[in-house]
């Protein structure tokens, strides 16, 4: 009998794990954005002395994890599991990082939803009594993602208004069975939603239904409503996805306009930084959460947050074959107080 389940898709953690540290490393463009003061390290060069963008991404993830662990006054030996993932084929950034760290490792692929996927699994492992300390991490890199999903960097093409800018950056969170919060209290795991969007340049449109489904289910399962939250923030729906989400959530009977935001809209100044619809990538939710949200929660400016990272689970191959984009959203409640 699964006593921790509430409703259809949610679990309530009976011993909520505490977030004891968070670390972020971002690229130069993110470091010029509105959230720059929240990041631990801003790189001047997005290659970071490496010979390829892929190696640079792995280094960014590795250093972010090490930083998060050392901020908690721990060493990698104290960590029992590493949950991480990224956007590159066969999640190489995460696996090469895990090779360096020698922490027992679960590699995840949830595209841009990986931050809440890793937090969900990490928190359940701790609550289940299988570990005391785990790290949840993810990374993305604009240039490694561009070459895999789109065009060469120097190719002179025009980006459509619906396109998003992959965040260069990594975020890592250390979860612990003991600590002073903030705590992970509820986890709502999303189902794949696919409304037939085939345009890989319109990921906000493809992912919005997944976020809407997960958020509404979260309210139904937990009994919470939008006013119970200080902030409900999606991963990277960006401008187009935000418009869709707010409209359709209203039709579902939930008015989110007062508390809603999106990591992809927070991280860049779309007008000045020419990022079109907004930011995206695993690193987007990771650095906004471990930078902005975590630090604001420690300052008690935010006390209960619903983080809903969203992922578009297509591949360049499936898009060429004319398949639509399967999308997912996982929600995690982060609370300064435990009931």
């Amino acid at each position: 009998m699964a006593i921790k389940r509430v409703g259809l898709q949610t679990v309530k953690l009976s011993n909520p794990p505490s977030i004891i540290s968070g670390a972020t490393i971002v690229g130069p463009k993110e470091g010029e954005g509105p959230l720059k003061e929240y990041f631990d390290l801003i790189l001047e060069d997005d290659m970071w002395g490496q010979e390829s963008f892929e190696k640079a991404e792995a280094k960014i993830q590795e250093e972010a994890i090490k930083l998060a662990i050392s901020k908690a006054n721990l060493s990698p030996n104290d960590i029992q599991y590493l949950f991480s993932g990224d956007l590159l084929n066969q999640i190489i950034s995460s696996s090469y990082t895990a090779r360096q760290l020698e922490i027992p490792y679960f590699g995840l692929y949830g595209a841009c939803s990986t931050m809440t996927e890793s937090l969900s699994l990490g928190a359940m492992i701790i609550d289940g009594g299988f570990a005391d300390k785990v790290v949840c991490a993810t990374s993305s890199h604009f240039s490694s993602a561009e070459r895999q999903f789109r065009f060469p960097l120097e190719y002179g093409s025009q980006r459509p208004f619906t396109s998003q800018w992959t965040v260069t950056g990594a975020g890592a969170t250390v979860l612990s069975a003991t600590g002073n919060g903030p705590y992970i209290t509820y986890i709502t795991t999303g189902k794949i939603k696919d409304y037939g969007i085939k345009d890989a340049n319109n990921m906000g449109g493809a992912m919005a239904p997944a976020a809407i489904d997960t958020i509404s289910q979260h309210f139904k399962d937990t009994g919470y409503s939008p006013k119970d939250y200080d902030l409900i923030i999606t991963g990277d729906l960006a401008l187009v996805g935000k418009r869709i989400l707010l409209d359709l959530m209203k039709r579902e009977g939930y008015d989110l306009s007062e508390v809603y935001s999106d990591c992809g809209l927070k991280i860049f100044d779309g007008e000045k930084q020419d990022t079109h619809a907004g930011g995206s990538g695993c690193g987007c939710a990771a650095v906004v959460f471990n930078g902005y949200i975590y630090k604001e929660m420690l300052k008690r400016n935010l006390n209960r947050v619903l983080l809903v990272a969203t992922g578009a689970l297509h591949s360049p191959l499936s898009i060429l074959q004319g398949e639509s984009i399967p999308a997912i959203a996982h929600a995690v409640t982060i609370d300064n107080l435990v009931e």
Partner: peptide, 8 residues
């Protein structure tokens, strides 16, 4: 519905 939300 998505088409209506896309900037032209």
């Amino acid at each position: 519905f998505v088409e209506e939300k896309i900037p032209k």
